[in-house]
Simulated assay, not measured.
Amino acid sequence: MSLAGAGGDGMKFVEREAWGAPSSSPATYLPSARGVKIHYLGSPYTSRKHSLCDDYVRAVRADHLANVKENYVDIAYSALVCEHGYVFEGRGLHRQTGANGNQDLNRKDYAVCALLGSSGFTKPTDAMLNGLRDAIDWFRTHGDAGTWVGGHRDGYPTSCPGDPLYAWVKRGAPRPDGGKDDDGGTAEEKYTVKAGDTLIGIARRLNVGWNELAKVNGMKPPYTLYVGQEVRVPHTSGGPRTAPPYPGREAFVLGRRHPAVTELDRQLVRLGFTRHHDGNGYQPGPLFTEYTRRNVSDLQRSRPELASDPDGYPGPLTWELAHTLS
């Protein structure tokens, strides 16, 4: 079980293998989504210790796989969130859900299920709401999901996700602590650093510039953070995009892995430079491949500043433009 967010944002994230599923889902590839639909279990559920939550997620998957009528290939949900705020990876990023009611709806949105019942445990905790918000932001940041958020009942005849949770959805799925989310609002004056947080991850989560965040806190490279540290957050939002520090040319070597390649890939996907791939769509990852190089070359050729030498290897200007172009 990893406490570091899948995107380095401090999300309490439980990977598939950690709760007992195969490492990847066999579900159909989903290049992008309109947004995220929120679900609940729709059956009686009782509050439990967190050590028992993974048992329940495994039980949900087993129940889905045994459903002959629906013929699920995997657990139906894209992710599940327990009352303790942990996000369990379901089908995950870029995988079509099986939970939204029909194929058209499954292709339209990701599906995040709160471990919340129709009786027994029926009202979400603040930790669960934060976890749901973490999941929404994860699919937006890394799964190319749009900003729309709704309930299962939106567009499908069902009572899911229950009245208490749906009321939260209709309010825009805000964080219960008044924290900054991707839809705007008032920034927190202070943010408490969690396990796995990075300066860039916090900036993304709060929708502020990482360099401005560093400046107001007097931080200098290598921007070291510690768990429990209080970080002052500037009251800005919706400003221009900024790029994290350039990692160096050595990060981009054919056949080698580096975290910066995953970050670069996300920007290529965001900008639409993804025509070169292995047949399963272009997906972010740490390996710098020939497909990566060719997609970077397409980006370079699209810009007059770079078109004279579109070699596909990111230098500081390519890195900057990949992050700041809209």
Rank of each mutant, 00 (worst) to 15 (best):
Y282G: 03
V227M: 09
S159N: 13
Y45M: 11
L93M: 01
E250R: 05
A195E: 14
R91V: 10
N67Q: 11
T46C: 03
D63H: 13
G8M: 03
H142W: 01
P244G: 07
D163R: 08
Y226V: 13
P310D: 13
R140I: 01
A21P: 01
R232W: 01
M219A: 10
G218K: 11
D55Y: 13
G315L: 05
G10H: 12
F139N: 00
A135L: 04
A6S: 11
G98N: 06
T318L: 01
Q103V: 10
N106P: 02
P240N: 12
T125A: 04
G209H: 07
R204I: 00
F13N: 02
S159M: 06
R140L: 04
G184M: 11
D183M: 12
D137R: 09
E189D: 15
G5M: 01
G10I: 06
G101P: 07
G281Q: 13
K194R: 15
F121D: 15
Q96W: 04
E230Y: 00
P174W: 04
K170T: 13
F121S: 14
V14D: 03
V216T: 10
R16N: 02
L132A: 03
V81R: 04
P221Y: 02
G272D: 08
R107V: 01
G185D: 10
T224R: 15
H323A: 11
T318N: 03
L213Y: 07
L287N: 02
H258D: 15
G5D: 04
F139I: 01
D134M: 06
D181W: 10
R241C: 00
G117C: 07
S23C: 02
A187F: 06
L199Y: 09
S237D: 09
R241M: 06
R58F: 02
R294S: 12
E189I: 09
P174Q: 09
C113H: 00
K108W: 10
L206W: 05
E188M: 10
L80I: 14
N106I: 07
D163T: 15
D134N: 09
